[in-house]
Design a protein around this nucleic acid. Structure first.
Lengths: 274, 274
DNA sequence: AACAGTTTTCCATATTATGGGAAGCAGTTT
DNA sequence: AAACTGCTTCCCATAATATGGAAAACTGTT
């Protein structure tokens, strides 16, 4: 009868990402969607320890949400088979439906397909290797292997984006796209090129021309000082570019001559996958 | 100033699945979770047309939810990268985060790994082929290929479950599990065996013994009249059973002699995958 | 330029999600 | 066996959150 006030009522769940410098200053980014955010937070938590599985209280602790709330949401996720629940161990794991839905995204399946390929290239070059796909006006990294070199170069994690053209793999995606699309992309990204990367559209056009002439994208520190990269496109059956593999390292390791060799290596590894 | 009453306030979103004959009669299955259910509904809708992508109104139409609500939830999903949004075409697609989370479920990745294998077996036998994994006390189908035979046999879709031991693949999972686990599973499923499949634990023990002797599970219409099946286990590096491949067809097509051949075929195809 | 279709914002409303409390369950320890 | 401990599940009053109609802002088309 005492009634209950919520501990942290409008708790700032949204305080996660806002870094992209979008407009809308003082309007909360996603209002009216607490539970959806929370649901996703729970899924992430479970996925992080999927092999051992996670129990209710662990999940609650990890996410900082009240046990009751977690329980309620997890029950739905289990009912929808987004999660599996083992009655005996009382552990939650990723469910078949979540997997089935994700599988519909064929483009990301390239990751599995080219995993070996990346590994071979990484072994041969000892440098960092990246696999990127196009996502709207961006290049999206869907897999990468860190180089053996002592110097960590980019923080270019899976899921990270940059404007098409910025970076070797990204440039490959752009340069080998159809002309009319290239125009649209350049225009759409013009502002970001200038603000984030200190580059102009005409500079990019130069790089595109060069890439087309070479047959691969060669980035000589254009985007980040001291970092060079080589990017090679991957085509689908229709001849459209669907992804790109790139190798990046410090300038000294990737001079023009070696860039040629690396490009050939990537091409031959890609060819094996067909 | 007229105020607005919601069209369909407590709309019965939950009326989806309840068929599993669970207890709890007159208590709504998942109360207090409308938005989570809706979120999942939206994800399904988008996934269904992922190649072309879907636009807001289409999604709203397909799911029967008000545009505004859809818009709000989709915004969150995009922010969390569960979906991608193409500014130009205004289309939504599966996002990288959803894929990344699903990828943590290694067990389901068997599906990709053995896809070719299933195809080869399907081509050679012309019968239906299934790939199942263990999920708690159940066998869970994660992939299948329908046979060429004119008679559609089982509706054993991806995501469908049955108690471990019921069905050829399912029996293979059970029979080649460690003894102590087998005991636990049999006990846990005892009721279901009897109620749903009209079988006793001791009958199952007989089948297990037979399977162990043969080196594969052979189901001669024990579970469904007129349907035979052959199931072969797949082991991981530690020697634990992680999945099973099975072939099923009408009794006439799978007699004891052919079952032996099929088992050998499956085994050799699996061996190629190592 | 007018139009039709779609996307996005706004906001009053009450339905739905919330979370404290407590009852149930295991699994250990005395 | 009983008492204890930690975890899971149920209950339900409360108000914060999600809701969806209305209308504004776009977009593309005739």
């Amino acid at each position: 009868m005492i009634g209950n006030k919520r501990n942290t009522p409008g708790f700032n769940d949204v305080a996660l990402k806002e870094g992209l410098g979008k407009s809308k200053p003082h309007v909360a980014l996603q209002a009216g969607a607490q539970s959806v955010h929370r649901t996703i937070r729970l899924l992430r938590a479970v996925a992080d320890s999927n092999d051992r599985g996670m129990r209710l209280t662990q999940i609650a602790q990890k996410t900082g949400l009240p046990t009751t709330t977690v329980h309620r949401i997890l029950a739905v996720l289990v009912a929808e088979e987004f999660l599996e629940y083992d009655l005996v161990s009382k552990c939650y794991r990723i469910g078949i439906e979540l997997y089935a839905i994700a599988s519909r995204a064929r483009r990301f399946a390239l990751r599995d397909k080219y995993r070996n390929c990346l590994e071979n290239i990484a072994r041969a070059t000892q440098d960092s290797v990246y696999l990127v796909v196009r996502s709207g006006p961006d290049a999206l990294c869907i897999d990468y292997i860190e180089g053996k070199s002592t110097i960590r170069i980019m923080t270019y994690d899976v899921g990270s984006r940059r404007p098409l053209g910025i970076g070797a793999g990204s440039l490959a995606l752009l340069a080998f796209a159809p002309d009319d699309e290239v125009e649209g992309i350049l225009k759409a990204n013009e502002l970001r090129y200038r603000k984030n990367n200190n580059m102009t559209v005409s500079e990019l056009k130069g790089l595109i021309k060069q890439a087309r002439a070479l047959g691969y994208a060669f980035n000589q520190g254009h985007f980040m000082k001291g970092i060079n990269g080589v990017g090679v496109p991957i085509y689908d059956e229709q001849g459209d570019v669907v992804a790109a593999v790139s190798v990046g390292s410090i300038t000294e390791r990737i001079n023009p001559m070696r860039s040629q060799e690396i490009a050939e290596l990537i091409k031959s590894e890609i060819a094996l996958m067909r």
